[in-house]
Amino acid sequence: MFAACADPKAIEGLTWAACYLTSGKHLDFYWSFVTVLMLLAITAPAALAMGFAGATAARSRFLPLSLLGKAYAAIVRGVPDIVFFLFFVIALDQGIEWMKHQIVCPDWTEPVRQGLEFRVCPQAKVPLGSSSAIWHQAYGFGLAVFTFAIVFGAFAANVLYGAMSAVPRSQLETAEAYGMSQGQVFRRILVPQMWVYALPGLSNLWMILIKATPLLFLLGVKDIVYWARELGGSKTQAYEYPHPDWRLWYFLGLLVFYLLFTKVSEIVLARLSARLSHGQATAAGEAMRKVAA
């Protein structure tokens, strides 16, 4: 990065530290913080959408749909997320390619599964073998987001299902009495009111999501824990910056990052909760009314 860093083994002290901390690998490390934040930013709404779909399905009057919604939430939540991550991504990847294979190469005669080998026609690879590395990375990132969304969608489905049942029955009955259709009751009464009940559960979920990000490296995304481990491990003279085992310091740094991140999240969520409770017929809303009066 700097001219002084051309020969790292000849420099010492502060210059060495400055060069070390700005090496290409460290820049990758800093960039991975952005990756993690980006993943959180994309996954949270995606998981919420999955959860909303799951909760709506579970409430459906159509029995198979309702069972499907409930089974989704129950099964995914019963399994430790780490176990799920270990095989689901490969399965998902193969599933996508198999579907594309059916569409793109209908004339392909060889079996797709040959023993343990999974072989689709070259045109069905996602992304194509010839596409540039950035697409492969984007696809890997997409798979990770999707997997996270499925796991956390199951939790969100549960929270939202509970929140939907918590909306006072009388509110819905009143709406029906005004002649609203089922869809209208759902859209105009149920959904706007359920958020305040769902918020405590959803904020906990957000915190779980933050703390599940170290599992990202299982999904093939190089996250902050991957780089901390890689950078901290002891380095022989084969590297430009040899050093002993410094993993402890890197992990302490990560600890501080996570603590700060959860603290900030807690503050923001507490504000949001206050905003949503405003004017609601709940204990928190009641308390706010009393303070104002």
């Binding site: 915190m207 703390k211 824990v225 990560l254 996570y258 603590l259």
Partner: peptide
């Protein structure tokens, strides 16, 4: 501290 950091770490 214990709730704010991943178990992993």
């Amino acid at each position: 501290v214990l709730r704010g950091s991943p178990l992993f770490i």
